[in-house]
Design a protein around this nucleic acid. Structure first.
Lengths: 165, 165
DNA sequence: CATATAAGTCAACATGACTGACGTAAAAAC
DNA sequence: GTTTTTACGTCAGTCATGTTGACTTATATG
């Protein structure tokens, strides 16, 4: 009952393992987000700006509502950050064609450049970890993180191989 | 060059996969940290308190410096939160025996109870994800996250099975 | 036309981070 | 045994990012 280690552990849900799983997430996120801070500082931006730049770059033409849904913050919070980015020419807004109330968001060239610069090192960090761990481990990483995400948001991540395994 | 999906992908370091790895981490962390907020609110505490409670519970007798090193915040920031927790009887401080300048931190019974309550749901979330993904995936999750963490902090996580896989 | 929705704005406030300066007690170095 | 360093704490001020609540404008939809 006290100690078990037989290769791949059948009792792998013990307290200690869960805590380790928790801490891995904490430390990885801490180090991961710290990666772009130096560059952000140069522009007088913070992590909130980074998140906006990232997701707009990822989903060009997304609406403000979409973005609010992803970030899970209030529109007042977003407005400050988004307003700055628009004003300083990193993001453009244009009215939606189907629904002209919407403001579709897109990165400008300047925005694309900043996004690239910011995410570059984060991507490198992921790439390094992926390479070191191997393809099979990456598959496991995906599965577990997907399971940690609220069901509603899992749809954002397409299944890798349609059918099996 | 445009699309590859042949089971386990040899070109698994492409842009798209890296971005997905990044986003998984973002969403998982977002949903994970949101889990305890309701309980924290009842006590008038925030996430900073949670982190302190968690790590003190995890490392009883740790010093203030240790805690600062883990959280990577300034002592002024920590002081406010830690001060509250001490004052309200969740954490005790006692001078170190070897070095009497140190204040060794420990949870009180009340603190242990709060910690349990706070982390309970997070652990349940991890357990659920682990169970759904399977033992092998958990191993992969560990490997990748460990690779994401700054080398200096990897030592916090003991190797699972001493020798080989 | 009435109502709902997408987006924005103004104001006030809370949390949790930061820098910089200074203080105290104990340990370590010389 | 005096000096210096270390561990911890504190005061004061600032900033980034989140919150609530109330209100506006333009457009879509019943």
């Amino acid at each position: 009952m006290t100690d078990v280690k037989t290769g791949i552990n059948p009792l792998f849900l013990r307290e200690e393992e869960l805590r380790q799983g928790l801490e891995l997430l904490f430390f990885a996120y801490r180090d991961f987000t710290g990666e772009a801070d130096a560059i952000l500082d140069e522009y007088g931006f913070g992590r909130a700006h980074h998140r906006v730049i990232y997701f707009v770059g990822r989903n060009p033409g997304m609406t403000v509502s979409d973005l609010l849904g992803i970030l899970r913050i209030t529109k007042q919070s977003l407005s400050r950050v988004l307003g700055q980015l628009v004003e300083e020419g990193f993001i453009t807004q244009r009215p939606g064609t189907r629904d002209r109330r919407q403001r579709l968001l897109e990165l400008t060239e300047k925005g694309v450049e900043l996004e690239r610069q910011l995410t570059e090192r984060q991507r490198a960090r992921i790439a390094r970890a992926y390479r070191a761990a191997g393809a099979e481990a990456v598959e496991g990483y995906r599965k577990v993180l997907l399971g940690l995400i609220d069901e509603a948001d899992r749809a954002r991540f397409p299944a890798r191989t349609p059918g099996r395994r």
